[in-house]
């Protein structure tokens, strides 16, 4: 191992089968699983101890939530396909697909904002009930994660994509890592939507 450069930033280490950033992002996702897990645990505890708890569909709009769900799953697919495009050395296709991913995410946020607006319009704030409190907190934290993902993806789409010319493999790995994060954000929503909207 050279004394100057850090090994396994691009190539995988033989025994772990991973390059550094991939292990790093999985560890980070493990901590995120604990974060959202704790919130789901709080949801369960609060609901189990409540006198009454509304069915999600009586307060939230299932069609809007379902639409958002399809948006997010689609953005996961386009993110994945943008990485596949890079592996096929098709930079143009990568840019289009990553761009669509970002747009779908922005659309998701718009729908979410509209949903929030519908609640605020009727003075249904988080302080009104524990259901609303946990709804706003969980979807709010999830939305913050979406925003984070949009920022990272936009950087990789824009200035960050210059790395394709100088270090294409390292850039491909970066898209893979960003993709893993993005899929996780989608995963959380796959639990969040049914729990909050359908139960």
């Amino acid at each position: 191992m050279s004394t100057e450069t850090i090994p396994y930033t691009v190539e995988s280490r033989y025994d772990t089968g991973l390059y550094n950033a991939k292990l790093g992002i999985w560890l980070f996702l493990a901590s995120e699983a604990m974060l959202f897990g704790a919130l789901f645990s709080s949801y369960i505890l609060l609901r189990v101890g409540a006198v009454d708890w509304p069915r999600g569909s009586s307060i939230l709009s299932v069609p809007l939530g379902a639409f958002n769900t399809v948006l997010l799953i689609s953005s996961s697919l386009t993110m994945l396909l943008s990485w596949a495009a890079l592996r096929l050395k098709d930079f143009k296709k990568f840019k289009i697909l990553l761009g669509i991913t970002i747009l779908l995410a922005l659309l998701f946020l718009s729908v979410k904002s509209y949903e929030y607006y519908l609640k605020f319009e009727h003075h249904l704030f988080a302080s009104k009930s524990t259901f609303l409190a946990i709804y706003f907190t969980m979807t709010g934290l999830h939305a913050l994660h979406i925003i984070g993902g949009i920022v990272v993806n936009t950087y990789l789409w824009g200035p960050g994509s210059r790395m394709w010319k100088t270090q294409p493999e390292r850039f491909t790995n970066r898209i893979e890592i960003a993709g893993l994060y993005w899929h996780f954000v989608d995963l959380v929503w796959l639990f969040l939507f049914p729990v909050l909207y359908l139960l």
Binding site: A30, E32, M34, L35, A38, L39, S42, A126, T137, L141
Partner: peptide, 15 residues
């Protein structure tokens, strides 16, 4: 693995 639940709790107390 142990800090995130406290982060969640901190967010809830802030709320």
């Amino acid at each position: 693995l142990a800090f995130p639940p406290l982060e969640a709790a901190g967010v809830m107390q802030l709320m």
